[in-house]
Amino acid sequence: MAPPVLFSEALALGLASGPACIAACGPVLVPSLLTQQAGFRPHARYLAAFLSARLLGYLLFAIAVWELGALASMLPALHMLPRAFLMGAVNILLACVLLWYAYSARHACGQSCSGSKLVNIGATTSHRAAGAVALGLLTGLSLCPPFVAAGVRAAQLPGVVQALLFFTLFFVGTSVWFVPFLGLGCLVRNQAVVTVARMAMVLIALYYLALGIAMLMEKKAYGY
């Protein structure tokens, strides 16, 4: 068993990486939260589903790479072509989910509205979870820099269980930074807020789509 100091390191690394995690997940999480019902509970439920799926994405990736026996050697390589390829594919998938989300939220104009398949305003719980889980899983797989750093550290641990525990504590550290997102629950929901969120989702989706295609084509994302 790894020493407790290692796990406090995982927690500290997670806490220190919070701003980067917020930055990475913000463009996906904020607009999707804004299409939810107002209130603390719906936001807490959505965040829980989103973060759980994000953790699942982390752990699945960690196990897969560990089982391949190449975590240590593969992570640096992920910065090269395979990483660009994976990131490109994830960005395109994220864009598709966001577009689907924005389309599904078209009927969401207030707490009494219905018709949405993904958004919780008038929709069933399973649909609500599906949207959050899809976005959480994809952001979990998007290999943000703190995740890569945690992966490198976890790779030095003697066993897969310790590595998973390390990742979990790292995840807990980062998740503390997501608590302020619950504050969006206080924002009143009306047609204006939901429309703004949907339009923002489309713009962000187009951005991710362009970025994803550029990564798949191995093109630079800058024009200078």
Binding site: P19, A20, A23, A24, H79, C144, P145, Y222
Partner: peptide, 9 residues
Amino acid sequence: HPHMLQNEM
């Protein structure tokens, strides 16, 4: 070192 998800080395 790059910040956040900055697409640089």
